[in-house]
Every structure is written in structure tokens, then in C-alpha cells.
Amino acid sequence: MTARSAARVPGALAAPAVVFLAVFAAYPLVYVIGLALTDSTLARPLQRWTGFDNFRTALESQSFTGSLWRSALFAVLAAAVQLVLGTALALLLRARAARPGLLGTLLLLPLVTPPVMVGVAWKLLLAPVGGALNGVLHALGLPGVNPLGSGTGAFTTLIVIDSWQWTPFVMLLVYAALLGVPDELREAAALDGADRSRTLRSIVLPYIEPTLLSVLLLKLVIGFKVFDIVYVVTAGGPGFSTTTSTYDIQRTALQEFDVGGAAAATVLFSLLIGLVTSLVAIRRKRYEEVAV
């Protein structure tokens, strides 16, 4: 659109979105910083200025400092696993047809399943007694397992569950990007003697790399938000081995009622997310500059 017609778009159209930003972004940010620097209870917020005391509490909390690391590890591992599996599925789906069809929709269903229900389904599946996994193992004469019994097992299980839910999302976005790869490029590569895997590596994947980076960024952001399956499947345990920051903060605020500590933890957690996502965003920005 020309600069003149762009100037005709009235600012009033943006007003509802600006109100949204004020209520849902600016106010919470300012308020949470206020809560972090003061003494509060759930009944009475902002009682008394306490400086950085709450930050000290948060950083000394055994569950919180570890949770930052676990959240980052979870976001990175889940995004990596899902990017690889999702891209593989998208390539298969694209090689099959130029329309996702009913099969594509069926593969997409995990994405729209309520995460709490996802967690419960997996928890029932993996239950040491009465679960399907051990049922199958016993039927095969093998000893039963309890993946949720150990720290590493529980953490890995959460990544598996999260990937079950989110791989279809990556699949769909990558599939859409694959539809944009011109057939001529593939055919030209084939004529130059490139086999299928060479074409994939040298033509297709580089072509969709901007999409892959966008999806990676999006998945990192989403991965940091993980809460539902932690709450339902492991409740942060065993020990603190699956206590992610969102889970720890929600529990500190609304079950232990330590409002100041939770607010300080929120501020620190947001800083970590900002750091990780801006690293990927900078890399992605370079593509946009080249493209323009």
C-alpha cells in the first residue's frame, strides 16, 4: 500500500489492540515488578518496600534456580526433537500429495487435544499398575517399568508427551512452507544429477530455512510456557526433577502464597526467556535483511 493510503488508516482501529497491550502486557509487567520489590500477601498487595529481598529469596530457593535451567533445557530439547520429527513428517506428507487431506487432519489432532487430557492419557498409559505399557511388557514376559519413578525418566517422559502434542504443529507449518518450494528448483536439481537426499539437503531445506527458524523460535517460546502436563503428570517431581519455572511460580504464588517471591521469580524467568529468544530472533533477522 502506498504511503498516502497507509496514512489514511485511522489510528482508532488500533485502539482496542492498544487497550489489550495496556491491560495484558504493560500493567502485568509493571505490577509484577512492583510486587517483586515489596511485601505482599494474596489479600493485600504492595504493603511495604523491601528492595531486592524477594529476589534474594527467589535465588536462594532450591526449587526456583534449578527450575530456570530445567525450563531452558525443556524448551530447547522439546523444540529440537519436534523440529526434526515434524520436518520429517512434513516431508513424507508432501511427498505423498500437495494436499494434507483427511490423513493430515488426523495427524493434527494431538495439537488440538486439551493438554490436561493429554497428560492424563499418558499418565494412565504409563501407570505402573493398570497402565498399557506395563500390560504389554508383562504380556511379552518382560519386567515392568516406571518411567515416572526417576528424575531423568520423568523429564524425558514430559518431553515425549510434549512432542506428541506439538510435533503436528511443526509438521503443518513446515508442510505449508514445502508447498512454496518451486517444482522447477527440484527438477533442475534432478537434471543436474542430484539424488533425492542431495536435493533435500542442498535445495529444499535451505529454501525453507527461514520457516524452520521461525518455527524454532515459536516452539522455544511455547516450550518455556509448559505448565499443564507438568501439573498433571509429575507435579514437578520426583523431587524437583521436573519442576519448571512456570510450575514453580504458580505453586509459590497460589499454593504457598509467597507473592513477593513468586513475583521476583517471574521477573528473573522473563529475563531468561528474553535472552534465549532474542538469540534466535537475531539469527532470523539476518534472513529477513537478505530477503529484502
Binding site: 492498544v18 500493567y27 511460580i249
Partner: peptide
């Protein structure tokens, strides 16, 4: 506006829990 709205999406929703609870 798009940049502001999208960056608000990057913040984890748990940031909004306490402020919105009081609101």
C-alpha cells in the same frame, strides 16, 4: 503495533497470573 503485540506473546502467561488475580 505488530512488533509490540508479538513481543507480548513471548512473555510467559505466568507473568500475568498475579497482576490479573488482583485486577
Amino acid at each position: 503495533l505488530a512488533t509490540l503485540v508479538l513481543s507480548s506473546y513471548c512473555a510467559p502467561p505466568v507473568v500475568a497470573v498475579l497482576p490479573l488475580f488482583y485486577l
